[in-house]
Design a protein around this nucleic acid. Structure first.
Lengths: 205, 205
DNA sequence: TATTTATTTTCAATTTCATCAAATTATATT
DNA sequence: AATATAATTTGATGAAATTGAAAATAAATA
């Protein structure tokens, strides 16, 4: 439940962050006039195309714009529905959920501080609740709607912790990722079931 | 005119940036329930008071909260009026002003790129229009609603450029700062008049 | 196939932000 | 005065964001 809010919270913050740059506000207004492609926007703003691409990616990740491909043009247009809310609505957390959310947040932060240092996992926690927290954190290194080979998965995981096999299995067990014939992909927030298995018990893969 | 928009743009972006952090969203919701002081908020969130202070300063600078002093408590409360707008309204720039704004922005960026490197002023431009741009940039290093001694002013300016006397005089001439008996303060955007004097002509101070 | 055009990704340099400890400022209490 | 409490500022450190050059993709066209 409070999970839901927390998740939401991070996502709301992401929207605000995406809007928190003057150049991106100009981009949105140019796109509002009519859908445009990156090259055009870069020309208008006399900006490096790569820079525009970065900005558009941020806006796209936050759901403020969508793009469709037309020939070799990527045409960006505004998602007006997502701009209809007031700041107030974007910010609001029902007070019933507040304390849960706050406590959850404080607990998570404590666990992450304990088990991570400089983005490196010091050890795999013994408690499943804590495993869940650290695995959710690690899962964020993977994008949604993308396939990863096992090699790619390992490459990402080894930066966190040497025992990539345990991490990989944990991500699957906790429903954060799925695998089919050697291909992995991230899963869109499961309904938070604690799995039977623990990362510290059955070690085979 | 397009100045007006640009200025606005930066300010709007600042509001979004202030809202672009999960912790600050929680802070706003806690403050919404009832006005609170920093210590209380820090305790609830098990956060260092200094951290809370920084967050509240960001929210305050963006106009999302105000504070009143009561004994030695600084009580923060929500500015609901500023949360009533939709994202759309916050973002919108009338298309008439768009092109002006864009051109202005591109020009400014070009001038700043030419005359600054790593936040250091390479030279004082000869044209007053460009002087204005670089001085406005430098003026941002000073806060509003604060007094600075000449020593403090110099200390800030010397990081930009050795000839602090010229910069100081420029800030005054262009109406970006005012001085009275050795005390300086920043001025709230004048109506952009180009002064008669140029930084490169009369050099006495 | 080779070349052009648009876009994205990767990498590196730089800047800005987040966080907390320590020092400082301001007010209240003894 | 000395002590206690709240808040802010400063400094250090790590994390994240911005930017653009260069390389990699992808589609169109000669």
């Amino acid at each position: 439940m409070s999970e839901q809010v927390d998740k939401n919270l991070a996502e709301r913050a992401k929207v605000f962050r995406a809007l928190g740059h003057p150049m991106r506000l100009i981009l949105l207004n140019l796109i509002r006039e009519k859908p445009r492609h990156g090259q055009e926007l870069a020309a208008i703003l006399s900006l490096n195309p790569a820079t525009v691409s970065h900005h558009l990616a941020a806006l796209s990740n936050a759901g403020m714009v969508v793009s469709t491909k037309d020939q070799y043009y990527q045409i960006f247009s505004l998602v007006k529905e997502n701009l209809a809310k007031t700041l107030d609505e974007m910010i609001y957390i029902p007070s019933a959920q507040m304390m849960d959310s706050v406590k959850e947040d404080a607990y998570k932060k404590k666990v992450l501080r304990t088990f991570f240092h400089n983005n490196i996992l010091l050890a795999i926690p013994a408690q499943r609740k804590k495993q869940q927290i650290i695995l959710e954190e690690i899962a964020n290194a993977f994008e949604f709607n993308r396939k990863y080979s096992e090699k790619e998965v390992n490459h990402i995981l080894v930066d966190f912790y040497e025992d990539v096999a345990s991490l990989r299995r944990g991500l699957i067990d906790f429903g954060l990722m799925e695998r089919s014939q050697g291909v992995y992909w991230r899963i869109k927030k499961p309904s938070d079931p604690l799995p039977e298995s623990s990362l510290l018990t059955n070690k085979e893969d």
